[in-house]
Design a protein around this nucleic acid. Structure first.
Lengths: 224, 224
DNA sequence: GCTCAATATATTGCATACAATCGTGAGAAC
DNA sequence: GTTCTCACGATTGTATGCAATATATTGAGC
């Protein structure tokens, strides 16, 4: 824990991290006083962090009732994946066109982290790093707007996984990220975009988005 | 002017409107106390509104120095149009696939507003409504994430026009929006997407984004 | 025993007060 | 005349206190 007073963005980042690591489940209440105590700051800063998080949909603000971690509906989940299927091939194309050695090195370093987490069977780290891979790719692809949107969509994807993941999913078999980076390095646009699309479809297909599933909060798994 | 205390989102919306109508020029300082006086609320709310606006890049926050209306660089402008060229054909496709009578009616109502503003030669209204057309189209297209992003990109586009527009631009000759809506109504995907792309390229080509232009704030036109 | 109403408690919403920081202008030194 | 320094003024950053609202608890009525 930092002894220094955290910045608003630091607070927001740490909440995002907790959400991505599934330490904050969808729908849970984020009481201002509690957070203020945890971070050692006043409610004012917490409120600012929460309104920021609300702006990109990770947190829902109910007037006079408080802030809650979002729990995206099935429709939102479908829209999200549709958006990612549109954006990420473009990200891959841009990366191939624009990324240099430094960028590729960052990708490899990230892949190492992912491999490490999978080695340790650290499911929380795996989920978070999987999301962050796509955020990193967007960043090195060079378009700030797309990157910012991906910074929003990836944490939401983690929430969606928390809500709709089939319990038996075996922590992603994926060296899929590795293969995508390989195709990028080979500057093979066709293969890289195709791998990316299959990867996204793969992730989406693992989920229960058929409508018969959990409506809001998954009380069963929250305890069981 | 509302006599009731405005909500944070109302404050943010009205600032966005002022930016879209070119009443707030790029780079201008947004002093908290001044805004607080204008809106009749305390600085607390103003700060929240400003941090929200900062989150989608319309406002830049300089620590301990204050908030300023953004003035996007040429690179940001290019990235922005690249993003819109990616998104808006998809928006058109989704609209054709999903929009019903009610949605088409809203589009026509908007076109009427645009025609009216052009009739009156109200340049400010024209610019704002032109942006809002794309936001409305995104909204009726049905994907909330794309819509939210367009709500961010369109005001920024207005800022970019304020910065880089060639002074002699004749207030857009466009019935282009009308023709796009016609193609959408005819469910002609090919023609609608093509019209949209040409429209975007048309808007972008009107601008001085070649690098020889204004670096930051356009002091010449601000007074001249 | 259950439902509904009223009070009590806890939490959010907001404004204000104070502390920290930055920009400015006066004045001295050179 | 120019430049550097210091102090003042103005503005932002943060915490706290109070008012408004929602939730929880208790108790009465059925």
């Amino acid at each position: 824990m930092d002894t220094n007073k955290p910045d608003i963005n630091e607070i927001a980042d740490r909440v995002v991290n907790a959400i991505m690591e599934h330490r904050l489940p969808p729908g849970i209440k984020l009481a201002e006083e509690k957070l203020a105590a945890v971070f050692g700051v006043s409610r004012t800063k917490i409120r600012q962090a929460l309104t920021q998080l609300a702006k990109d949909g990770l947190v829902k603000l109910h007037p006079n009732r408080g802030a809650f971690v979002a729990s995206p509906s099935i429709q939102e989940a479908l829209d999200l994946f549709a958006t990612r299927r549109l954006l990420e091939p473009e990200i891959v194309r841009n990366t191939i066109a624009r990324a240099g050695k430094a960028e590729l090195k960052r990708l490899h370093q990230h892949l190492a982290l992912e491999a490490d987490a999978r080695e340790r069977n650290d499911r929380r780290a795996i989920i978070k790093l999987s999301g962050e891979f796509h955020m990193l790719l967007a960043e090195v692809s060079g378009n700030g707007f797309i990157s910012k949107l991906m910074d929003e969509l990836c944490p939401l994807t983690c929430l969606i996984i928390a809500l709709y993941d089939a319990p038996n999913t075996p922590a992603c078999p994926e060296d899929e990220h590795t293969r995508i980076v390989e195709a990028i390095e080979a500057k093979d646009v066709e293969r890289a975009t195709s791998l990316m699309l299959h990867h996204l479809e793969h992730v989406e297909r693992e989920l229960n988005l058929d409508g018969r599933a959990k409506p809001d909060i998954d009380w069963d798994r929250m305890f069981g």
